[in-house]
């Protein structure tokens, strides 16, 4: 029976573990103290005037991606283009023509947070910012 308490190549194993831990935590300590302040998306005048979006602000903040996913399925697959929100208001389900009609400044509104959170939604690979098209 070998001695179970003995650890083979102790030095190498411990050194290897240390290097491994340092490497995988690299992004954390490298960026320590460099956190950029969270951006505040700028509402366009039109959006300010409208006061309310499709859903309350808090919901939009956390769930706009789910809402958009639902919209795209309903429009493309069920051929239903009108969305009625809980307060009875009707919207044409269109990213370029409804969302961006109000939130005119994509760069100041959408991109600001997306860049900060380092997400690149592929919406814009097809859907057009009407401003850019001009």
């Amino acid at each position: 029976m070998p001695n179970n308490k003995k650890m083979y190549d102790k030095g190498k194993v411990v050194a290897g573990l240390c290097i491994f831990v340092v490497l995988i935590t690299f992004p954390f300590w490298f960026n320590l103290g460099k956190a950029a302040p969270a951006p505040e998306p700028k509402l366009s005048d039109k959006a300010k005037a409208a006061k309310e979006c499709v859903m309350p602000k808090a919901t939009m903040k956390t769930e706009h991606m789910q809402i958009l996913n639902e919209w795209r399925d309903t429009v493309v697959r069920d051929a239903k283009r009108i969305y009625t929100n809980p307060s009875g208001k009707k919207f044409n389900m269109s990213l370029s023509n409804t969302c961006l009609d109000c939130h005119v400044e994509k760069a100041e509104f959408c991109d600001k947070c997306h860049n900060y959170a380092s997400v690149t939604p592929y919406c814009w690979e097809c859907h057009i910012d009407p401003k850019e098209a001009k």
Partner: peptide
């Protein structure tokens, strides 16, 4: 000439 009312494709 891009038509802003219709998406392009990826």
């Amino acid at each position: 000439e891009t038509n802003p009312d219709f998406p392009t494709r990826t």
